[in-house]
Design a protein around this nucleic acid. Structure first.
Lengths: 307, 307
DNA sequence: ATGAGGCCATAAACTGACTTTATGGGTAAT
DNA sequence: ATTACCCATAAAGTCAGTTTATGGCCTCAT
């Protein structure tokens, strides 16, 4: 992250409106159609696409008197643009949930990992099938989630701990797994067989602070190996942990959900672990006895793992 | 994708500059520091953050005379913003590679799936460790990649077929897997045991067009089960296939790389397949005999799977 | 062929969001 | 107290993106 000569991204990447416009052009097959879809005029769309092509230095669309189609490069750029726009949609879904504080119809409480990585996608899906639903979101640790749900301050909760808090019914919605990851230069990156649980337990690691769900699972999994060594670093956020590991400080342990991007980009390399169960269930929870109904049931059915 | 009343995303999501600024505030702990980092003045940063808070309806930062820290909601929003910015960085890395046509130092040819989903991440990593390297990218099917590499029009190629084209050396860089996915309402979504290869082979599927690497692997894997039934739909792009499957047209088969987002958001549900090997190796290729050197070697070492 | 209806490009005037410049008030450490 | 951070506010400036207005090109149906 810490580059010397940093030119802000904004000057090199078209803005979200332009990317969205490009997607519309790809889908509708014409600039004027895309313009209408976006609520702007045709010359505006033409100018924006042209500006984008100039900035990227590549022709994106083939214009013809009966429509516009993507060039080969345009198709590739559009695919990358789609990922940006989808991330923006997830941002929007989360932000909308965060905004609707008291008065909304479905109130959700979720642990950090779930709120960060899974909920935005679910909310997009929920909006797709029940467009009217207003959702509010409260994020915090498992104890907070349990308290909210029990007090009926939330209609549905999502937790990632090992145990279900008392007074709540639950359903497993996904399996998460803790993953050990190191920078590509780290000796562990070249290990064929990964590491034994005992070696992992005796190695100083980069971890989330004590009390986080992640830390709790790791403690429990390595209890049989003499417990965890003193941490190398203890950081407050997932991102800080990743950044430290990427910079080569040492091995880190995080949810595979949180490590997806880093592993795909090879900024970090996964190290297999033998002899310890690092899996954990992600659960939806609700007050014992009362089965979720209405919007809560809709969301639950979107997330529930079938088995 | 086809909503009735469509308000463009731009009006609901802050622009990339604002998101980037928010990340800078989170990292540096002050508005003025973030402003300097972004090359704007402190009042501009203050105003932008304020505008973003007003738009989202949530306080994002706690301002104090000795710095600004994120609120709890701000931390969550920042994590979502980070995903948008990372997607934008991937866009930029890809776009830069696309722009540098003839004259650049490292010329890469890659198949569509790899160019879409993996290369941008690798290029970000490459830029991180060799900032000066200019990369150009050509995307196409395996045959085109092979031709480019053989003709020394590309220094390094990436293919996803079953076989390595003649005259090329290769290294496996990752394992990909074809995944069968259906809309959550589809009967297969509730199957406990997934589907048998024979049943898959006899079911009309939504597929990429013949000749794509994906299609080729699927044909080969199901050859033993009497071959593939006539496709339900045959579409030209990964995105079109996903859209058709999401809308409930039927089961689709795509790379797990392409399906990541849809599976996480539960727009599609994965169906396990028994009795067929749907894995495939993703390979880097280069002219036989000549081991990659210089920037090509750097990129290769970033992507290579350790084993 | 000829007119109608698509599509896209260009030019000029307009608008507003974001910016800088300029200033003031607050806290903490020397 | 002085210095050095931090942030907020107000007013003036700037530029990208917009609309309005127009024209050219192609295809299809009459």
């Amino acid at each position: 992250m810490g580059n010397e000569e940093w030119v802000p991204l904004v000057h090199r990447v078209p803005d979200l409106g332009a990317l969205e416009l490009l997607l519309a052009v790809a889908r509708l097959g014409s600039l004027s159609g895309a313009a209408k879809h976006m609520g702007i005029t045709q010359p505006a769309a033409s100018s924006r696409i042209r500006a984008m092509e100039a900035r990227l230095g590549v022709a994106l669309v083939d214009r013809s008197p009966r429509g516009s189609t993507l060039t080969a490069e345009g198709a590739l750029v559009t695919d990358w643009a789609r990922r940006v726009v989808e991330a923006a949609e997830a941002f929007d879904a989360g932000a909308q949930a965060l905004r609707g504080r008291r008065d909304s119809r479905l109130r959700v409480a979720a642990s950090m990992t779930i709120a960060e990585y899974l909920l935005p996608g679910w909310l997009i899906a929920l909006r797709g099938q029940r467009p009217g639903t207003a959702v509010s979101l409260q994020a915090g640790n498992s104890a907070l989630v349990a308290r909210r749900v029990l007090a009926h301050d939330a209609d549905l909760g999502f937790v990632e701990g090992l145990t279900v808090p008392d007074g709540l019914d639950s359903a497993v919605i996904a399996q998460d797994r803790l993953v050990v990851a190191v920078a590509p230069e780290h000796p562990w990156a070249r290990r064929t067989k990964g590491v034994e649980a005992a070696e992992l337990a005796s190695t100083p690691l980069i971890l989330r602070e004590r009390g986080s769900g992640t830390r709790q699972v790791l403690d429990a999994a390595l209890a049989g190996c003499g417990g965890l060594a003193a941490p190398l670093l203890e950081l407050a956020s997932t991102t800080a942990v990743k950044a430290a590991a990427v910079s080569g400080a040492g091995p880190c342990v995080l949810s595979e959900l949180a490590l997806g991007d880093e592993l795909a980009a090879r900024r970090l390399v996964q190290v297999p672990v033998t002899g310890a169960a690092l899996g954990r269930a992600l659960r939806a929870v609700w007050p014992a006895g009362s089965r979720p109904a209405g919007p809560a049931r809709d969301l639950l059915s979107l997330t529930r793992v079938r088995s």
